[in-house]
Design a protein around this nucleic acid. Structure first.
Lengths: 278, 278
DNA sequence: GGTGATTTGTGCGTATGTATT
DNA sequence: TAATACATACGCACAAATCAC
C-alpha cells in the first residue's frame, strides 16, 4: 500500500523491463548463456535486479521469447532455445528435362539420406478457388478446383504443410481426382495427359503463424515465423499447378542451386546453420 | 483488498485472454474489422467482456500483435495492420549469359518502374570472416575478407540490408577495395579480372529480427519477421561472392522465375498479395 | 507411486508516466 | 490546458504442471 519505493525518480529513457531484456540478450548472444542452458527463475531475476516486480521480469522474458531467443516451460524454467536439427529443405530448381514428382520422392530421399523416418498425411478435396489460387491458376474466383494436401512428418514431427491446386479439366484428364497419393507423382500424371511442366514461378515470403497453423506444424515456442512458399508451374500454354507450402522457419531453409556448380559440388557440402543462431 | 471475486470456479480450458484474442482475431480475419480500422479502447474491451481486468485485455492484444495482426499507438489506439504496399522484390534467376551487377540496376529499375524513388547507403570495410561467411567463401574463419554493404531505401524507407563478402585476392584483382559504389557492378568487375560467375546457390530462411535489425529496417510493429537470403556465387573453380540480404518480411517477397515461361508472361502479371492478409 | 515444493501461467487490482488530440 | 488512451510498474492470489523425495 503506502510502500512508495522512491526508486526511479530519474527518467528511464529505456524502460526497465527492456533494459533487463537487453542484459539477458547480451548474455545469450555472447554465449555466456549457451543454447539449452537455463535462465535464473523469475524470482531470482527479481532479486538480481533489485527486487523489481515479477511482472517486469515477465515482460522482459516475453520480449526475448518474441524474438525467438528463449522458451519457457511450466515448472521447469526458462531456457535458451537451440536451433538444433537445422535440417534444410532443399528445393532444387526443376528443369524441363527432369520433372520431379510433386516433391514426394525428393522428400523421401532427402529424409532417408539423413537417417530419419519420413511419413505423411494425405487428403483430397474439391473446393472453390480463393482469390490467390484463382489468380495464379487463371480460373475465376469460386470455380471448383482439385486440392490435394500433404502434411509431411520427420520422425513423427510435422515438417511442412503443403497443398496443391489443379484446374478441374486437367485434374480429370490426368486422373488426379482420387483420394490417395499418386505413387508416380501428379506431375508425371499430367505429363502423360499432355500437360507438361516447362516453367515454374516461385514466390517466397514469411509471416507469423496463426494459432491453427502453429498447432498443425507443432510450433510451440513464440517468435517462430513460417516460411510461405508458392510454386506455380506452367506448360507452354497455361498454368498447370499451384502449390502452397508452409514451413516452420526455425527448422527449414529453402535452397536453390542454379547454373554450373561443379565448384560447389567439389567442395564439401557445408550446411552451416543459416545465421539462425545470429 | 480482500475482494475475492469468486468468479471463475469453472475450469477455463482455454485462458480468458486467449478466448478474447480468438474473438478479436475472428473479427479481423472475417473482415468485419478491416485493415486500418480501429479496435475499441482497452477500457471498452474490458466492459465488453464483462469487466475483466485491463491486464487481461492487454494480454489478448499482445497476442494479436505478436501474430502481426494489429499494432498499437500510444494515445491513438489499436489498429488492424494493413499489409499495404506489398511491393514484391523480384530476384530473377541469374543466368550465365546474363550476369546482373550485384542487383543494383535491377533494384533501381524495379523501383523506378513503380514510380517510387530508390536510394542507398553504401559502405566498405575489411574484416575477419565469421563462420558462416568463411564456410561459404571457403576461406579460414578469421581470414580478412572485403565486405561491401548496401542499405536500400524506397521513398526514404529502409527496404533491405545487404552485405557482400569477397576473398581478398579476388577483391584486389577486381578492384573492389574502394569505398564507393562500383557503377558497373562488382560482378562485371570480377568477370573482367577473369572470375566469371557461372552458378549460384541461394539459401532462404526467416526469423524474428534483433532490436538492432528492427531499427535499421524500420520495423516498428511486433510480429514482423525478416527474410534472410544468402547467395553464394561460383566460377568454374571456386566461390566468388557471398551476399547476405535481409528484408522485412511484411513488405517483401522473393520471386524465382525458372524455365520456359511464355504462358506466364502472356497472362497479365498478377501480383496478388502472398497470403499475407491470410 | 504419491506428496510436497518449486516455477511458470493466469488473473485480479492499482498507480503513474507519456504522447497525442 | 485538459482529457484520452496506451505504456510501464507495482502489488497480490491461486492454478497447473512438474520435479524431487
Amino acid at each position: 500500500m503506502g510502500t512508495n519505493h522512491t526508486k526511479g525518480p530519474t527518467v528511464p529513457i529505456t524502460p526497465l523491463y527492456r533494459r533487463i531484456a537487453d542484459q539477458l540478450r547480451e548474455e545469450i548472444t555472447s554465449g555466456r548463456l549457451g543454447p539449452g542452458s537455463r535462465l535464473p527463475t523469475e524470482e531470482e531475476l527479481q532479486q538480481q535486479h533489485g527486487g523489481v516486480s515479477r511482472n517486469t521480469i515477465r515482460n522482459a522474458l516475453r520480449e526475448l521469447a518474441a524474438e525467438g531467443l528463449i522458451e519457457t516451460a511450466t515448472r521447469r524454467g526458462t531456457f535458451v532455445r537451440q536451433h538444433r536439427t537445422l535440417t534444410y529443405h532443399a528445393v532444387s530448381a526443376e528443369r524441363a528435362d527432369r520433372p520431379s514428382s510433386e516433391g514426394r520422392d525428393a522428400f523421401y530421399d532427402e529424409v532417408h539420406a539423413q537417417g530419419r523416418s519420413p511419413s505423411q498425411d494425405f487428403a483430397m478435396v474439391i473446393e472453390p478457388a480463393d482469390a490467390g489460387v484463382a489468380a495464379r491458376l487463371r480460373v475465376a474466383e469460386g470455380d471448383l478446383v482439385v486440392a490435394r494436401s500433404v502434411v509431411r512428418y520427420v520422425d513423427k514431427r510435422p515438417w511442412s504443410d503443403q497443398i496443391s491446386y489443379y484446374a478441374m479439366d486437367i485434374a480429370e484428364q490426368a486422373g488426379l481426382i482420387v483420394a490417395q497419393d499418386i505413387p508416380d507423382g501428379t506431375v508425371r500424371a499430367m505429363a502423360r495427359a499432355g500437360h507438361e511442366e516447362v516453367g515454374v514461378v516461385d514466390e517466397i515470403t514469411s509471416r507469423m503463424p496463426t494459432p491453427e497453423e502453429a498447432r498443425v506444424l507443432d510450433i510451440t515456442a513464440a517468435g517462430v515465423p513460417v516460411l510461405l512458399y508458392w510454386r506455380t508451374t506452367y506448360s507452354t500454354s497455361r498454368p498447370l499447378r499451384v502449390t502452397r507450402t508452409m514451413f516452420p522457419a526455425d527448422r527449414n531453409c529453402i535452397v536453390y542451386e542454379l547454373g554450373e556448380l561443379v565448384a560447389y559440388h567439389e567442395g564439401l557440402r557445408v550446411t552451416v546453420d543459416q545465421d539462425q543462431a545470429r
